[in-house]
């Protein structure tokens, strides 16, 4: 099993922490994992993205150049990352903020209104969790329960209510169908 993932969006949309969460969840399932952020000026106000690898074998390169799955949370990310998805791979689009449609026909595309769903649950801050839930549901690479468990490890100082909202968002996202 090998899953290379890229997550991209505006700084503040939680793409960096979503990536860490995936890696932590992978570790909880005794997988080999790595997480690598795009770091620097772009993380201040601009777009941010990170690479995550979850694999049963040793992780060789931590920089994912041909991701199996790409999650785009905003418009500019679609243009940047759509071309990278492996043929046959999965592209998850936050359709609340992304109006354009991907051009490629050799990949699977899931439209998830992450911000809208998150807002209905309580706060748009958890739009990233909806996307992660969709990822878990569509790929089966990780279970929502493990990601929920990882939440406590990654956000050590988060309030229980907030964690609960996160789990709700994950579960709602996992209902996504293509």
């Amino acid at each position: 099993m090998y899953q290379g993932i890229r997550i991209s969006g505006f700084g503040g949309q939680g793409v960096i922490s979503a990536g860490i969460l995936l890696a932590q969840a992978g570790l909880l399932e005794n997988k080999n994992v790595s997480w690598f952020p795009a770091y620097g000026a772009e993380m201040r106000g601009g777009t941010a993205n990170c690479s995550v690898v979850i694999a049963s074998e040793e992780v060789s390169s931590p920089v994912v150049s041909r991701p199996d799955t790409v999650i785009v949370m905003n418009e500019p990310s679609l243009a940047k990352f759509e071309p990278l998805v492996k043929p046959g791979g999965l592209l998850i689009i936050n359709s609340s903020l992304v109006n354009s449609k991907p051009k490629r026909t050799d990949i699977k595309v899931a439209y998830v209104p992450c911000n809208k769903i998150a807002e209905e649950i309580g706060t748009t801050k958890i739009a990233n969790m909806v996307a992660l839930g969709a990822y878990a549901g569509l790929t089966g690479a990780l279970s929502v329960d493990t990601i929920a468990k990882a939440l406590g490890k990654v956000f050590k100082r988060a309030k229980p209510e907030m964690l609960e909202l996160n789990v709700k968002a994950l579960k709602k996202g996992a209902e996504t169908k293509i």
Binding site: I20, A23, L27, N32, V33, S34, W35, F36, P37, Y39, V59, P62, V63
Partner: peptide, 10 residues
Amino acid sequence: DGILGQMMEP
């Protein structure tokens, strides 16, 4: 290097 410094792994 920057990758080894910035990446997360177990």
